[in-house]
Structure formats: structure tokens, C-alpha cells
Design a protein around this nucleic acid. Structure first.
Lengths: 184, 184
DNA sequence: ACAGGCATGTAAATAGTTACATGATTCG
DNA sequence: CGAATCATGTAACTATTTACATGCCTGT
């Protein structure tokens, strides 16, 4: 029973209470998205596979007259989720186009390197703001007993703050070395 | 002319001097790998496509009797690389299985959450060591004129140090809340 | 002679995104 | 009534990894 990592996101998301594919997507989008995304194209087929494997169970749960299926985790599913949680994590990936551009910035004239860092910094600052906007909801949920989503959210905030600060530091370093306009 | 991001890694890697696919892979593996990886399965086909598009040019450069093709960037390729460097970066991805596990750690008994953080911390500490081992080479190259690869390498070191420290902090926080063994 | 590194490539599988199609319901 | 949101799904595409195949060269 080899599950892909996205399957575990789904198992985790239905582990507290039954959810529809649509709800799972929405949950992912305002929580794990920052370190583990999932699209409809993955969620719906995966829910079917998990149901076939007996790890989740679907049940009709229409909202008014609107058709809707919610999936609940089964005992086997819970076991699979726990087994996975007990394994040391093995996927650590980062794709940062900004760092890639910075890596090659030597091919540009000197004064064009700082703007790369500026874009990166702005992006990180915007991310911090978005995460902070989510924080109150996470605090409320943490008071309800589960502190981990909030802990993870705060790691995101701290990370993005650290990164923004790093960009700023490198920016000033570059600007100190070569002033905006070299007098000719 | 729409290039995928991996194409730019290749363009960047051949922008200083002509390189073979094998060399590009080796370079990526000890530099950009940490934020932008590439496998042979991408590099060789992509080199062909770039050659067809006129952005690089292949030339036979056997080592002794061993067949070998090195690719040099063309004027058009250099232009494409610079144009790309001038666009604000748009890909920012992270896949951290550890954070995902931590996010769902509430389904485990309390005492099983800290080990997740411990694995994460150890991984980050190992990464710091690997990056530090590369640092002297990068310093030497930076003295040769291009400071950016070193700057990027150091961002990796700092990031991993920050992350390891964060894990440590959260670990003690958890252990303070619930001592290893609750006396019964 | 053999191991390890140099060198090039492909096939198959896996992952993941994007865009599209469809249709109901709710709210202003 | 129209827009937004709820809801489910698929097809096509893009990206990426892994494993395999092949073979030469160098150093021990």
C-alpha cells in the first residue's frame, strides 16, 4: 500500500471530521499550501483511490438539493496516517526562482542585481502579511486543543520574515559596494 | 519562445564557458540543487531543444578518445538569459514533508510530536554541514570576481541554521509542556 | 582486471497544474 | 437577474524522477 504524499494530506484533512473534496481543497489553500499544495486534479482522483483502498469512506451529504459527497477516514486510514507520521520525513524541496536568478546575476551589469533582491523581499513581505491575516483563525483553533497548525503557520511567518530581512541585508550590501550611479 | 525554468539553469551554467551535459549536471548538483534541481532526463533533451532554438551551440570536444559535446551560449541565448533575469521571479515553492507531518501531529499522542521536530532539525543540521563543506570553493570563486554564487550559498547556510534553531525551539517548547514521562 | 568516474542518452512512471465542462444554490 | 460560491470531475499538458542501457578512459 504505497501512497503518494498528497494522499496523506487528504487523510490528514479528513482525520478530524468528514470533508468533501471541495472543502479539502479550500483547507489546503489556506493552510498547507505554503509547503504542500494540492489541486482538484489530484484531490478528486486520489479520494477515489483512497476509497477503493478502504482508507476513507464516502457518504452522500447534500447541502440542500446540491449533490455532495463527504469522506470520512476509516480505522485503516487512521492507521496509515499514523504510520506515516511516525516515519522520518523524506521530502525536502525548494524551488526559488529568485535565488536562481541571483545565482546568475553576475551576467548582468552590477546595478541590476539589487532589483532581484528587491522583488524577492517584496514577495516575502507580502507573504508575511497574508500569513498574519490567517493567524487569528489559527489561534482560535489552537485554543480548541490542537496547537500544531498554529505552530506551523508561525514557522511560515518567521521564515518569510527571516528571508525578507536577508534580502534587505544583501540589498544594502550590494548598494554599499556600488552606489546607484557611478560618477563618470 | 517560451522556455521552461530548467532551460534557464542550463543557459546560466553555460554562460561563462562551454560545458557538457555531464558537467552541467555536476555543477547543478553542488550549487543550485538546494533550490533548483535538474536531472539528466531534463538536461540532455533540453540541451537539444536549446540548440535547435539557436540559444546554445554544441561542439565536439572529446577528452582523449571519449566522445563529448560541449555547449556554448549564443548571442541570442545570452539575450534570452538576461531578459529572464530582468523579469521578477515567479516561482516560489516549498515542499516540506516535516512541516506537513507537524501540521497533522495532533492525531498522535503528545509525546510523539517532538521526534518529528528532532528529525527535521537533524536534517537541517546535516544540510548546514554539507553547505559549509562547499563554502571554501565558493569563496575562492567569489574572489575571482562573481560574488553571487557565494551569496546564494550563504543564504542556504543561514536558512538551514535558522530552521534548525526553530525546530530546537519548538522541541523544547513541547517538552516543557509535557515532560517525556508523565508520572502516573 | 576491475572499480569508479566520465559521458550520453531514453523509456516509463509519477507528479502536478491548468483549463475546461457542468450544474446547483445563495446572496445582493 | 447576475455574480459568486459550492461542488465534482476530466483531459491535456508540463515537469520531473528513476532506472536502465551503453561504452570509454584512468588509476590501482
Amino acid at each position: 500500500m504505497d501512497l503518494n504524499p498528497t494522499a496523506y494530506v487528504i487523510l490528514g484533512m479528513v482525520s478530524r471530521e468528514p470533508r468533501s473534496g471541495y472543502e479539502i481543497k479550500a483547507l489546503v489553500d489556506d493552510s498547507t499550501r505554503f509547503f504542500w499544495a494540492a489541486s482538484y486534479g489530484q484531490i478528486y482522483p486520489e479520494l477515489k483511490r483512497l476509497a477503493e483502498a478502504g482508507l476513507v469512506e464516502g457518504a452522500d451529504a447534500p447541502t440542500g438539493g446540491r449533490k455532495r459527497t463527504v469522506y470520512a477516514i476509516t480505522t485503516a486510514g487512521e492507521q496509515a496516517l499514523k504510520d506515516w507520521l511516525r516515519q522520518p520525513p523524506s521530502t525536502y524541496e525548494m524551488r526559488e526562482e529568485g535565488l536562481l536568478k541571483l545565482f546568475f546575476a553576475g551576467v548582468l551589469p552590477r546595478e541590476e542585481a539589487a532589483p532581484i533582491l528587491a522583488s524577492m523581499r517584496e514577495h516575502r513581505q507580502r507573504t508575511v502579511e497574508r500569513l498574519r491575516a490567517i493567524e487569528p483563525k489559527a489561534v482560535a483553533k489552537a485554543d480548541g486543543g490542537d496547537p500544531f497548525p498554529l505552530m506551523v503557520l508561525r514557522s511560515g511567518i518567521e521564515f518569510n520574515e527571516w528571508f525578507a530581512e536577508w534580502c534587505e541585508r544583501m540589498e544594502s550590501q550590494l548598494l554599499a559596494q556600488s552606489p546607484k550611479k557611478r560618477s563618470s
